[in-house]
Design a protein around this nucleic acid. Structure first.
Length: 122
DNA sequence: CTTCTGACA
DNA sequence: TGTCAGTA
């Protein structure tokens, strides 16, 4: 599985492709990099080259944003996720661990929704 | 033509 | 965020 992982980490997509794949504007994509959420390489002429991994991350960012999270929250989530990866560096994620990470992220989302006062209807 | 940085409404 | 300017 390392071959695919390596390929997935190859930065070969110009920002124009990322725009089409994520339905985001170049402005937003660059902004997310500014916030440290993605780290595209800089090949020729100082141009950003994204990897499939980056696409995945950006898509996730878009999802979180859609759920009402701000950049700060997303940064926290990724920071926590990084620490989690440090914890189990040599072994694969068990289903339980994956669940824990996901629920933890969802917890972060739910605990900070200030825009859904209407949700009190249940 | 496509992308980059900085800046302003 | 959108968008314009001046480059590379």
């Amino acid at each position: 599985m390392k071959e695919k992982d390596l390929r997935r980490s190859l930065s070969v997509l110009p920002i124009g492709t990322v725009m089409k794949l994520t339905s985001l504007t170049a402005r937003q994509i660059r902004y997310y990099e500014e916030q440290g959420l993605v780290s595209p390489e800089r090949n020729d002429g100082n141009r950003r080259m994204y990897s499939l991994n980056d696409i995945d991350v950006i898509l996730e960012i878009k999802d979180y944003l859609d759920e009402g999270l701000n950049i700060a929250k997303i940064q926290e989530i990724y920071k926590k996720r990084k620490e989690d990866n440090k914890n189990n560096d040599t072994k694969e994620l068990t289903d339980q661990e994956a669940r824990k990470i996901l629920s933890d992220e969802l917890l972060n989302i739910g605990g900070l929704n200030s825009h859904d006062a209407a949700n009190n209807s249940f």
